[in-house]
């Protein structure tokens, strides 16, 4: 499962590159160029999504997602507002129900692989007035390992302190979380994911509303994670930094527009398909399906 993912693009030179170059389809249709996928055995990929469709309140927000994430890469998930970026992560983590599809982490369902997965939710998702310190929040990343009913011990707190140190927040361990700046709060969330010592990380807009220093610190940390062979999927919306930050991209707008190495897929054409041509017809149809209650 530690197959180096250089394989992703072995065929990159074979024109024309299908935008879904890293998808699991061995040969989508007769005559199509044979493209390599994220892993030789997609079932061993850090994240493998097959035929996922998600609907909120009967309105489909993600259509037919097929994706295999390559191992040991920083992967940016980009797309316009309402493209379903966060939804994709939430569906993978089982936080929103899928209308159809299958998700596996290193070949097994997520529910069996929770230990291997770290999650950084959006910062707005919690009440920062909550009476806990930064250290307490980071320790929450260890709760699952500590197990039911057992208390947090000194050993766990030390581990949490170490994680805080890694994000440069050791001095703030005992501060109540509302008295941290936005960037510092984000780093606390990051430390909570770090302390889990996972293999795959999902981060939902970690750069949203943080100061430049934090953004640098976060990206340095992500690169460190990658050096350690971890796979990191990041929901991101700043197109300017995409090329410098990420090895791989997943361009999303209700469906996968393109996926693959940043250099390959970060093209005007793909961006236009992602952001430009709003699929008004498809939106209309989705709307009609929601209204009439047609289920897939």
């Amino acid at each position: 499962m530690n197959k180096p993912s250089a394989a992703t693009t072995t065929n990159a030179s074979a024109a024309p590159v299908h935008p879904r170059a890293s998808l699991a389809e061995p040969a989508p249709w007769p005559g199509a160029p044979k493209v390599a996928t994220g892993a030789e055995h997609p079932e061993d990929a850090p994240l493998s999504i097959h035929d996922m469709t998600v609907a909120y309140d009967r309105k489909p927000v993600l259509w037919d997602i097929d994706y295999n994430a390559p191992q040991g890469k920083l992967i940016g998930i980009i797309g316009p507002n309402g493209a379903g970026k966060s939804t994709l992560i939430k569906a993978v983590l089982g936080l929103v129900p899928m209308a159809s599809g299958k998700v596996s982490i290193f070949g097994k369902p997520y529910s069996k692989q929770r230990r291997l997965v770290g999650y950084v939710p959006q910062r707005e998702s919690v009440d920062w007035d909550f009476p806990v310190s930064a250290l307490d929040v980071v320790a929450m990343g260890l709760y699952r390992r500590i197990g039911w009913c057992l208390p947090v011990t000194r050993r766990h707190r030390n581990a949490a302190r170490e994680a805080l140190d890694r994000v440069g927040m050791a001095d703030y361990a005992d501060r109540q979380i509302s008295r941290l700046s936005g960037g510092q709060q984000q780093r606390v969330f990051l430390a909570r994911a770090l302390v889990q010592d996972a293999l795959v990380y999902f981060m939902d807009e970690p750069f949203a509303g943080v100061d430049a220093a934090t953004e640098q610190a976060i990206i340095a940390l992500l690169q460190e994670l990658r050096r350690g062979g971890k796979t990191v999927l990041v929901v991101h919306h700043d197109l300017q930094t995409v090329e410098t930050y990420f090895d791989e991209l997943l361009l999303l707008n209700m469906r996968i527009v393109a996926a693959g190495e940043t250099g390959e897929v970060f093209t005007q054409e793909n961006l236009h398909k992602t952001y430009g041509g709003r699929l008004t017809l498809l939106d209309q149809a989705a709307e009609a399906m929601a209204r009439k209650g047609v289920r897939r």
Binding site: H18, P19, R20, E25, P28, W29, A32, W63, D64, R255, V257, A258, K273, G277, L279, L282
Partner: peptide
């Protein structure tokens, strides 16, 4: 517009 492979669009 979605670049779906032709054998994938029936559904």
């Amino acid at each position: 517009f979605l670049n779906l492979p032709p054998d994938h669009v029936h559904g």
